[in-house]
């Protein structure tokens, strides 16, 4: 499907607008002193000019491919990665890493029935015993 303004571009500009607007509103609500707004206010003004300029130039450009099938795969892996990040301190670093690496290898095209889980298990042990032992913080684990 072709579109003049790809959904991912609209999403990005929406994110920039929403986050910048929120930071500006929050900063102005907290204090209107020069010291507090010395960076926020000029940056918001420049972003306020740039956003419509980019929007107008994107709308003037010829139509291009919208989110392709590859993008859905990326988004699926990204969702899995976000869930993994959240799970680290909830289900344990070892179990979360094992499941994520196994699923990630399969999603990225790793073949075979036993190779992905075996690799994930070995990788997890190396990470927990190697990387984890160097952490200066306590690390929640379920098995090791």
């Amino acid at each position: 499907m072709t579109t003049r303004f790809p959904a991912t571009h609209a999403a990005l500009l929406g994110v920039v607008l929403a986050i910048s607007g929120f930071i500006l509103w929050s900063a102005v609500s907290a204090s209107t002193s020069l010291n507090n707004l010395v960076v926020v206010a000029p940056v918001a003004a420049v972003l306020g000019v740039l956003l419509p300029v980019i929007l107008a130039s994107a709308l003037r450009k010829p139509a291009r491919e919208d989110v392709g099938s590859g993008a859905w795969g990326d988004l699926l892996l990204l969702a899995g990665f976000s869930a993994f990040c959240l799970a680290l301190t909830h289900v344990g670093f070892d179990v979360a890493t094992f499941v994520f690496v196994w699923a990630g290898v399969v999603m990225s095209g790793g073949r075979g029935l036993w190779q992905p889980p075996l690799y994930a298990a070995v990788f997890t042990v190396v990470l927990v015993k190697g990387f984890g032992s160097l952490f200066p913080y306590p690390m929640l684990t379920l098995v090791f």
Binding site: L77, F81, F93, F100, A103, S108, Y119, F123, F131
Partner: peptide
């Protein structure tokens, strides 16, 4: 194999 492994290391 590299992508999920390095992603996991990034989170760690």
């Amino acid at each position: 194999y590299l992508v999920p492994s390095v992603l996991a290391m990034c989170a760690w």
